[in-house]
Nucleic acid binder design. Structure first.
Lengths: 322, 322
DNA sequence: CTGTTAGCGCATTCAT
DNA sequence: ATGAATGCGCTAACAG
């Protein structure tokens, strides 16, 4: 392994000079910097991050925190896309990405604690937003750690958020149905999880309904994720046969609804869901629409924010109906 | 920050003794170990991984390498489940997980190189298997790095694999259709990506067809992921109206086919796909089946292997038709 | 603009 | 069974 000492010797300078040159410190003349960097490159020099991190008291790592979810959860797709966005910002900064997961809240917290207290990680991105979250609370008490939350602002202790405008997204989705299909009896459905983003989308839906002065259908269908709700869903659909458009807060639920409707009445119903995912481009059905929330952009903006010098920030990533 | 020196002082022993005690070194009496560990715990001592790693010349990190894929790729779900499996094995070993991604082969390789040469990571898990892969080739040349590949063995330089038996999975899937639906004209469809695992499943399919002495339908339908193949698919379906069962090498393709068939002929066709994903438990359709490949188990076994003392290993994770 | 030196926290060799 | 001393590779304070 070639160390900075070897580089210094080869360049006939002191280690500190080599160190500064390699870190582009302006205290070293541009000429020397170029020369030393070239020598280092020729020798195949690579920093030892452990040594560097130890010396700096901080790791070149961004901790990416996943929500506590089960195997097979479909939301997962969204999360990977966010990671991809984060990843884009890391390489130029010489940072890497570590992941914290857990099967329970405590397990997750414990992983995050190790990241802060043992691995000296000071930058985190949470791929979820949750009220009274143990992880968020822990991070907010730690000095010198900066964390960015992707999702609805729910916690006054958190200074950095990246989010879509879910109210506007719900509004746009609803207007889209009315404009495109002339729908007058639009139904809003959501999961029974009480996610904040679903509530926001419903608010947007309500605003649009009011503005358009059309009929709002009852929306208290709480489909349970991952269970078989066939009977319940079918009877629900039959009781709402007058509906001519559906805004689904959750893409999988919208998809399920769409399929059952088609099966029950043997015809399509216009459905619009949120989140983009390749599934929909392969449906091959023109009545199935999607508000693309650009998860990769969410991740990318979060990464930018976690490196910015600001003391607070709230980035809104635009969506697109299609 | 409380360091090992503080612990040593508090316990009235030398730093070296404290270090050994905290690492459960048998050279320290059990009594001293217990006493020192208790003191450390009371003081809230935490190892500094950077210091430890620097000293040992190796990081307590497992690098998890993603294939080069685009945003919105549905395979993503499978990958996250594998990560979850890996994660299970890490905490007890005091290891953490870093992720390498890239938009191109070279970008990915560059990230992995940084992990080995800069971050001193010696253990890797590849979430994909690919012939002539730059990353695999790089890793195989590095001393003291151990990597486990999840997928079909394709590279003689790789000593550790974890995989499903995809031939058997294809065989079982086909037999399942015949047994359950008495299908006699079974179609096998795959993507146009030439993935090794798809070819294996097709072999299994062929074996089953031969053994059952039933009709094998032509299977050269190369659906392109993420594109609109509606016209092509519909004409293909119409040309194969005698088919009474489908084995789809790729879950999304199977799903697409299922939907189009239903739309075209206004009735279901039995379909069986691979990979588990919550989607299918919500289809609410009894004709849609899945061979569960247990991605989380794949990840978990890979993690075990990357920590084992063996010099080579090939683990097969069983599947289950349902 | 550059060099000397100390120190980050820990593991380990060598001594006792 | 335990302690003292050295070094891992790098940065930064201080000195010139």
């Amino acid at each position: 392994m070639v160390t900075i000492r070897d580089v210094a010797t080869a360049a006939d300078v002191a280690v500190s000079t080599a160190s500064r040159a390699l870190n582009n410190n302006p205290r070293i003349s541009q000429k020397s910097r170029d020369r030393i960097q070239l020598i280092a490159k020729d020798m195949g020099y690579r920093v030892n991050s452990n040594a560097k991190n130890l010396s700096l008291g901080e790791s070149n790592v961004v901790g990416v925190i996943f929500p506590v979810t089960k195997v097979g959860n479909q939301e997962n797709t969204f999360h990977i896309d966010m990671m991809r966005g984060v990843n884009k910002e890391l390489a130029p900064r010489k940072y890497v990405m570590s992941v914290a997961m857990g099967q329970t809240d405590t397990e997750l917290l414990s992983n995050v604690q190790a990241m802060v207290l043992e691995a000296q990680i000071h930058r985190f991105i949470l791929l979820y937003s949750k009220k009274n979250d143990m992880v968020t609370q822990f991070l907010s008490t730690q000095n010198d750690v900066r964390y960015v939350v992707i999702g609805e602002p729910v916690d006054s202790g958190t200074q950095f958020y990246v989010n879509n405008d879910n109210v506007l997204a719900g509004f746009d989705a609803t207007k889209f149905l009315e404009r495109t299909y002339n729908s007058k009896h639009i139904l809003f459905i959501k999961s029974n999880k009480n996610w904040n983003f679903e509530i926001q989308r419903e608010h947007g839906f309500n605003h649009a309904i009011d503005e358009l002065k059309i009929k709002r259908e009852s929306s208290n269908l709480g489909l349970r994720h991952g269970n078989d709700n066939s009977d319940r869903l079918i009877s629900y659909i039959k009781a709402h046969s007058n509906v001519d458009g559906v805004v689904a807060a959750d893409d999988m639920i919208g998809f399920t609804f769409f399929n059952f409707w088609e099966k029950t009445f043997n015809k399509d119903i216009p459905v619009i869901v949120f989140n983009n995912n390749q599934l929909f481009s392969r449906m091959g059905n023109n009545n199935f629409h999607c508000v693309d929330l650009y998860p990769d952009k969410l991740g990318q903006e979060a990464a930018k924010l976690v490196f910015s010098d600001d003391t607070r920030g709230y980035i809104v990533v635009p969506h697109k109906v299609r």
